[in-house]
Design a protein around this nucleic acid. Structure first.
Lengths: 219, 219, 219, 219
DNA sequence: CATGAATGAGCCTTCATTCAT
DNA sequence: GATGAATGAAGGCTCATTCAT
């Protein structure tokens, strides 16, 4: 239980400060995440959530003005954390200056990092991806953040390693697209489509990196 | 309109025989596909569908016993057509004997074929993919068809081209996974995530094929 | 089947003339009687009746303008036949002049006659009694016929046997009430409440007559 | 109003403990009883009940999960109370030991007691008897209670007064049947068939008792 | 703060009835 | 005459939300 609370607080915490969540609030969020992930937002009733959370129906609305607010309280932090590495101020500098000597190292690190992230917060991430198609607010939020933060930085990195000679001279957009597809595709296959298949995670992730790099490398 | 009717009938037609759809039925299906795609099954009311289709609400239930039946009437054929190339009896023989001299030719053909398919039936496909997370029946149907038809044939093809020397000796499962991710990932990016981006489809598809082949080829 | 048709025609036939019923009409009436008896008029849908009768939904409404008309087509003749002995023109004369030498003979004959009647037309009678509480038209019809035909004649008979010295000098209304209750009560017990009990019909009917006569006879 | 509440609470109270009914609940039950009695369960809509009760339709379903639950909440206690005298633990002893010196006294008391009961709870009793034909649950409940409690005790009493010499030596079952028919028949005539007739209740009940006793007494 | 009774709009579905074929 | 597709009102029931306690 301590554990449950913990992952939630970590997920919802956005700027280092501890989030303040009453015990009831935590129960509500947990229940909502679980049910939204399983049945979808529209097919889940607030009374079900209340029952599963062990609180009165009214209590949910004390904390979240509407059912949609409850959804967004889950989705917004998840979305932010999903693209988090790119939100870090120092991120690009780190990539160039020392941390990653090659694009290969970079995507390997990125894949591993996102793998751990999805593993940890899977239910919330399911909610996020399942609902994004139905709620413009979420779609726009993601687009805003992606173009404002992720895309720019990603592009810099790609172009750096193209000049550097590691990557082939294909359009940066294509490189970015293929990189994201390879990483996201692996995670979707691993955690959503075939979570019960017996994965050799280490090997498969390395294969993913290799395949991508051979595909993108300068020949 | 003639056109509209046509694509629907093609989508729903499963074994060569013409499907018989009354005009009202077509209107209902069109309206349902459009609304399910946009708002999701659970958030779409039958009265909205009826209004958009220009029929009485009761008419929907004369043709489809329940709202869920209406969903499945859309999703089942879409699902079947989605994995259709692999359902053709002669398919494997064709691949080996002449049509495709290399795995590269094969995936190029596959990608183009699926690209045309998605382009044509996009709304129905959206419905299918958006709802699969929420309905076990659909998930099980897909799994059954995939393991029974797609997976076996795909494996034969991959192993053939591995013996042949074109593909590297990594596990067939991994090759299949990466192939599917590359193709599906491109289509998702192209039609769902960024349908409004100015795509140079020819170039981008070729790049996808190249990247994948370099990644998978024997070095 | 010949049989089925027969009893229905007999029930519906009111004034000696043969009733003209198309085959479909018979099927509809049979189905309606069966379902109304089992589930009640309000809980039976016309489409169920149509299905059970093997006709199209519209066919019912060609023969009976409304669902209620269908009910009345069943109930009215049943009601009339239920009080039929008293409708016969010559009835009172028969009782006095020869047929029945005593009130005891009269009620014995009445009971046997009504017993055969209920046995033959049970489902239709069930419909009649189950629905009478809910439809004023039926209630009024019964009241009209009862006061106009049954009550008057019954009273004459009772008063005759009171003067005659067979019956005690209690109010005729009370005698009528107790007679009807004894007869109707037996039939309800026999056919509705405990149809599956192993009845010795002869003995039980005789007991009913005896009990009633001892109760009513002059001491 | 105070009065209304009172009779309802008395009817629904089953084991001495006070039933807790919110004001809205009482209004709902009152409205439901009235409408079910008048139009029948199947022909009464929950929205009508709500309107008559002066509550929102949803409120009905907060207290009674389904419309049928509402019916049973009315019918079950009515059914139990209807056969209540026989449910009392001490009942048989009372009959034998002192209270009733003869079968005549016993049925006189029973009739008067049931008369008061029907007079008090008429609408609920109508619902009970009108619906019993259509709902197996109710029929089975009555059968269970009757055979388990009423029949056994009734039989003991009858056989006691037969040995005793008061009652003739006809089968106990027949005595029971005729007794019940006489009592129930009177009540049905009095309250259902001809409630508006000018009844001299005292006289008519005594006549009923006399008639029955003369019919059943040893000669 | 938390509760849970109350609400009434809206949901999916069924119904009796009509009417073109 | 018979059909059965079409209708739209009404049915039972659920829902998100409010508010007095």
């Amino acid at each position: 239980m301590m554990n449950e609370e913990q992952w939630l607080k970590e997920l919802l915490q956005l700027n280092g400060e501890d989030v303040k969540l009453s015990e009831k609030q935590i129960k509500i969020l947990e229940a909502a995440i679980e049910m939204f992930a399983e049945k979808g937002y529209a097919a889940t009733s607030t009374s079900e959530i209340a029952k599963k959370a062990g609180v009165a129906e009214g209590t949910i609305f004390r904390h979240y003005k509407t059912k949609k607010d409850l959804l967004l309280a889950i989705v917004t932090p998840t979305l932010l954390k999903s693209v988090a590495p790119f939100l870090a101020k120092e991120f690009v500098k780190e990539v160039f200056e020392s941390q990653y000597e090659s694009y290969e190292d970079f995507i390997r690190a990125l894949l591993k990092n996102r793998y751990e992230f999805v593993k940890k917060y899977l239910p919330a991430i399911r909610v996020f991806w399942q609902e994004i198609a139905f709620h413009v607010e979420i779609k726009e939020q993601l687009q805003r953040i992606f173009t404002a933060h992720v895309y720019q930085k990603f592009k810099q990195i790609v172009e750096y390693f193209q000049k550097n000679g590691e990557l082939a001279a294909i359009p940066a957009d294509s490189v970015i697209r293929m990189t994201i597809i390879a990483i996201a595709g692996f995670l979707v296959a691993r955690f959503i489509v075939l979570p019960d298949y017996e994965w050799d995670d280490e090997a498969e992730m390395e294969r993913t990196v290799q395949c991508l790099m051979h595909g993108l490398a300068k020949k």
